[in-house]
Design a protein around this nucleic acid. Structure first.
Lengths: 173, 173
DNA sequence: GATATGTATGTGATACTATAACACGTCAAG
DNA sequence: CTTGACGTGTTATAGTATCACATACATATC
């Protein structure tokens, strides 16, 4: 019975939030996230088809925010369709399933590192080096849900994105 | 000495968060926000030129999220330039000065109702009626700042956007 | 007053992002 | 076997945003 423990507990690079911008064994994260996504797809009765799976792999490999057309270029090079809808449909599927996140500010997408954990991601975008970190934001989401509830608004999906300076770029500046 | 009290204290419609989706005397909000923006521009030594001012007025009049091209159409009809950069430049200026906000999820912009108050806006977007409410989100921003700080990230600007159902649409569903 | 400098605007062209609409193939249910 | 749901491929098009250059207009400086 695999994957019943959060990824962060087993991944040194993901254990502490302050390592979000640091190097870590990303290979482990990738294979783990992919395995989790596959298991979740089966459990939910949705199909992680070749295109969808490959898009997720690409996002995991790159480990950065990618535009739909960046993904499409790679898909086309591998014999998949080379028209925009191919990429957009796969990305939409991954987002719907929580396997990937859309970063509106960048018109880009990134693989979710913690699929199935029902987390609330916040994205920290460095305006200098363009690195994007996915920070744990459960308290942020809680506060947002509360604020929305005061207006009677029911949140279904949220985008929490911050633009600023990562530790490295803040240091050199 | 005008404008030394927060707008919400004087505007019935803005006093309580739970009225964010309700009707209120928007005329008062508009003129107030415009006057505040003008004062702030003078104080900061930046120029609220005719185009910029008109764009802000348009956003305030419409009181909803508008695409850059929607704004541009209105500008062109009034004798201003009719090319995209005209609108985008004005909108960027307004966003930089905190007179307007960008709603990434909608590729749209909206006037800020509380310019100069250093608030943290969260946008609640109804997926049924497309209404957008600007909810007070100081606690949300505080949580986000804290989460970012744990990674050593310094936030300069944040987008907090939620998609879901507004009270009215949630009721009819 | 003439000149320089920074800023703002106008314009044409173009790049980038995203979706609509339809055809075809596959698979499972009835 | 037929139907219907789903996924993919493709053409075409819609929508969003920026680049690059020219011009105007302000203020500051000589």
């Amino acid at each position: 019975m695999p994957h019943d423990t959060p990824h962060a507990e087993a991944c040194p690079g993901c254990q502490t939030p302050d390592l979000a911008f640091a190097q870590h064994d990303h290979g482990h994260c990738s294979t783990d996230a992919l395995a989790r996504a596959e298991a979740l797809a089966v459990a939910r009765g949705v199909r992680l088809t070749p295109v969808r799976r490959r898009v997720l792999e690409i996002l995991l490999e790159e480990h950065k925010a990618m535009g739909a057309y960046d993904v499409l270029t790679r898909l086309a090079a591998e014999g998949f369709g080379n028209q925009p809808p191919v990429a957009y449909r796969a990305l939409e599927f991954l987002e719907d399933q929580g396997f990937a996140h859309r970063i509106c500010r960048l018109n880009a997408f990134t693989a979710c590192m913690h699929p199935g954990e029902d987390h609330a991601p916040a994205f920290l975008i460095c305006r200098v080096c363009d690195t994007v970190a996915e920070a744990p934001a459960a308290p942020v989401m809680a506060a947002l849900t509360k604020a929305a509830a005061q207006s009677g608004f029911v949140i279904e999906r949220a985008n929490i994105e911050a633009l600023g300076l990562c530790p490295a770029c803040a240091g050199t500046a």
